[in-house]
């Protein structure tokens, strides 16, 4: 896996989510990107029940359990701001066992699904972000597979993103800058998930787009 940047793309004025996604697809195809299947990233929210001993921390932090189709046998568990845990999918079974201590906030499940494109060393995933079956926004993930050090390739990635996102190119993801070793620390899959988690949290707080139910 390489350096990855996840950002939210605003919906074009007067267009629907689907129409904006189609526009992005068209731009990528014009560039010469090739469709390569689909992808999903999902996120479940758990909160500690009063039964759990979160006495000292009030209110207790939310626990997020995420999956990424890119790593189908892994399960990623995160607290906002850390710590983060990479585990195998049996962690989902464990959460079921823990249900008297951690409750799944069913209505809070957010996911992003869409098409996966490859353009040379870049992997681009354009996803529709949905929450309780209503489309809430668009996510774009760009991965530069040839490099694991953000400081070495950020400018290149930015230039590539400009070619199809125009002025919507995001700033350097804070997850890279926040590392104690700075921009020259190698990335791991958790950096991608932290970015998705940030995007999902933003989307969750957002107003529902009227009439934007999926399919």
């Amino acid at each position: 896996m390489g350096v990855t940047c996840v950002c939210q793309v605003p919906i074009l004025e007067g267009k629907s989510v689907q129409q904006t996604v189609d526009m992005l697809h068209k731009k990528l195809e014009q560039l010469g990107a090739v469709k390569q299947g689909s992808f999903f990233v999902d996120c479940e929210t758990y909160h500690a029940t009063s039964n759990a001993s979160g006495k000292k921390r009030q209110p207790s932090k939310l626990l997020y359990v995420m999956h990424n189709s890119e790593t189908p046998l892994s399960c990623l568990a995160l607290f906002e701001g850390g710590p983060y845990l990479t585990a195998d999918v049996n962690f989902d079974v464990l959460m079921v066992k823990l249900k008297s201590h951690f409750q799944n906030a069913k209505g809070h499940k957010v996911e992003s699904r869409g098409t996966r494109y490859r353009y040379c060393d870049f992997l681009v995933k354009v996803g529709t972000v949905t929450m309780s079956s209503s489309a809430r926004g668009i996510s774009v993930e760009v991965e530069y597979c040839a490099c694991v050090v953000p400081g070495d390739c950020w400018n290149l990635m930015k230039e590539f993103m400009q070619s199809f996102l125009g002025s919507n190119v995001p700033e350097l993801p804070s997850v890279f800058a926040a590392k104690p070793e700075g921009l020259y620390a190698p990335v791991d899959c958790m950096d991608t998930m932290v970015q998705y988690l940030e995007l999902f949290s933003k989307v969750r707080k957002q107003q529902v787009i009227p009439g934007a139910s999926v399919r």
Partner: peptide
Amino acid sequence: CVDVAASHSLPDFLNEMG
């Protein structure tokens, strides 16, 4: 029995869970 393989952050993570 549930067996889970996990990363090295496990002790910190369990602490955070309570």
